[in-house]
């Protein structure tokens, strides 16, 4: 039985810059099951946004999707015509982009912005119907009717973020992608926004992909977690399993160096810096920082493999059967 709603295969995204080609996504494979919440976590610049933008074909020049497949219910989104893709956005797969709440149109009332999105897809629906739908959507994300009459600057960050969620779900997509939906919000509002997203997801029966860097948020929210490093997925598995026993050395360090209320003044980031996406080191991209690196790591790129049932990892410790 295959309950995967979305399958991403060997996805590559490059940006052409003066200094060379930035390999922001260097061959990523994962799938999302119907109704599940999947997290993509990784440090700044590792390619999370590029990955999720590519799923919707929203990469802008100088970026381009170089290779890969994005199968939504078996249909490769990368092969749709532009018009077909435009219709699929929002209706089948939708995105709450990073910083979305700051990109609401400042001179347009919330009502109009929401109606615009819906109109772009359903053409000339009667005005009344649209208004009712706006009200219903706002209610769904826990906002009062009057919010519809407001301009973005009259709302708090948490309220704006919920407007963005409401827009993303307005056409009942099967997959909702949220890129750092709460990184500018305080913890209380964050918790509220995440509860909203979770509730909506359950009611819609949609799948959610959450991209971000907050391991705490991931632990609280997602069912499965993918860890990205330098444009690649290095580990993927059930959230509890990954936290309990990370298989990849990077994931292990990431979890071991998490700040917590128990470890004060313990400022250990992971030593070293992530490699340049302009020129990745040979072999495994993490090898220069890896405490377990051995000869083979600087020669061969480790394969993406299922080390244990449901636990994927790209690391020679597992290729070798040493883990």
């Amino acid at each position: 039985m295959n309950s995967d709603i979305l399958q991403v295969k060997d996805l590559h995204v490059h940006y052409d810059t003066y200094s060379g080609v930035v390999k922001a996504v260097g061959g990523v494979d994962f799938s999302v099951r119907a109704g599940e919440k999947l997290g993509l976590v990784g440090e700044s610049g590792c390619g999370k946004s590029s990955t999720v933008l590519a799923l919707l074909r929203m990469i802008k020049p100088p970026g381009r999707i170089v290779a890969g497949q994005v199968l939504l219910d078996g249909v490769d989104l990368l092969r749709l015509s532009d018009e077909e893709m435009r219709l699929a956005r929002f209706a089948a797969i939708s995105l709450i982009p990073q910083g979305a709440m700051n990109s609401l149109n400042p001179v347009m009332r919330i009502r109009e912005q929401m109606a615009d999105t819906m109109r772009a897809h359903n053409g000339g629906r009667p005005k009344r119907e649209l208004q009712d739908r706006v009200r219903e959507l706002l209610q769904w994300v826990g906002l009062s009717d009057w919010v519809a009459n407001m301009f973005p600057h009259e709302l708090s960050g948490g309220m704006k973020q919920r407007v963005c969620i409401a827009m993303a779900i307005s056409l009942k997509p099967k997959v909702v992608i949220a890129d750092e939906p709460t990184s500018a919000l305080d913890v209380v509002v964050q918790r509220r926004v995440m509860h909203t997203l979770e509730r909506v997801q359950q009611e819609l029966g949609a799948s959610v992909i959450l991209a971000g860097h907050d391991m705490g948020l991931m632990a609280q929210f997602v069912d499965r977690l993918g860890v990205m490093y330098a444009g690649l997925l290095v580990e993927l598995g059930a959230t509890e399993g990954v936290f309990e026993e990370p298989l990849h050395p990077y994931a292990r360090l990431l979890i071991d160096t998490l700040p917590s209320l128990d470890r004060k003044g313990d400022f250990k980031g992971i030593p070293g810096v992530a490699p340049s996406l302009l020129s990745l080191p040979p072999g495994c991209a993490f090898q220069p920082r890896c405490p377990h690196a051995f000869d083979r790591c600087s020669v061969d790129e480790p394969a993406w493999q299922e080390a244990r049932p449901g636990r994927w990892v790209a690391c020679h410790l597992w290729t070798e059967g040493r883990g």
């Binding site: 440090e43 998490l258 700040p259 980031g269 992971i270």
Partner: peptide, 19 residues
């Protein structure tokens, strides 16, 4: 909010630098 957009490891590195 100097580090609200970076990951925990880097956040630790930057705050460590500030400290």
């Amino acid at each position: 909010e100097p580090v609200s957009m970076v990951d925990a490891s880097l956040r630790a590195t930057i705050l460590g630098t500030l400290l």
